[in-house]
Amino acid sequence: MSDSPRPLTGAPPLGERLIEAALAGCAAISLLTSAAIVLVLAQETFAFFHAVPITSFLFDTEWTPLFERARFGIWPLVCGTALTSAVALLVAGPLGVLAAIYLAEFATPRARDRLKPMIEVLAGIPTLVYGYFALRVVTPCLALVIPDLQGFNALSAGLVMGLMILPTVCSLGEDALHAVPQTLREGAVALGAGRLATLFLIVVPAARSGLLAALTLGLSRALGETMIVAIAAGQQAHLTLDPRSPVETMSAYIVQISLGDAAAGTVAYRTIFAVGAALFALTFATNALAQRWIAAARRVG
């Protein structure tokens, strides 16, 4: 072995610096894109609020930007979004979590390996197909049970949206349950706990933060979902919480306008940016809230 001192200083080789720069560039692209989006959104939104006072946007109860007497109250759209998303979450939450529990705790490894891809196929179906499924199959079927169900309604759009986000909730939920250390299950079993007691008193609480994360991700997908609601929920902005009636969600409204119902540059056209900003704020708030719950659950955990 040589005892001559090897240098401790010196610049990293050129190749290494090039790779570093390339990687930084890739990261910068996504950052710049996000920044550009926010910038455009902010600019157009400001332009909109120049024409329409923010108070009427926040406190008016009607959304009729294309009427002659245009009203710009955002709440009908928020309600539509909240309603369809709530229905979707009511479907996907329990179903997804229970399916995840089945897959993680009860299914044999072979059954799990077969079932999980089948559930994940649901995530691969184009949302357009879901939309027509809601309109042509689910609504007529529901109409047999609920007589005063309207042709376009929040209920069937929400139900189908629930199916759409089911794989997300189920798959992430299963991962969360799977991540609960085996030692906790063993600890419970060694105390003489039965299978269900172990599951519901130990495993599910331990997976709480992961399950919450799964539900949040499902919810954000529902909030942003466009095609299903645009097709099956109708495009009438009503301030209502009745799932049997047609509603318009924020995303569906944006699609409607972008498809050419308003001329570019008009106030009506600018509404889509204001609605987009509002949707952005809503998802952002949802995520932030969920992050706090998850963090709290994790602190306990």
Partner: peptide
């Protein structure tokens, strides 16, 4: 319940308080 066990790695139940951990065996059963 007559033959208890303690494991290699401490495995207190993460969702429970100290008190609840102690009585977890009774609660679970």
């Amino acid at each position: 319940r007559r033959v208890g066990m303690v494991f290699q790695k401490p495995n207190p139940f993460p969702s429970m308080s100290i008190r609840d951990n102690v009585v977890a065996g009774l609660r679970l059963t």
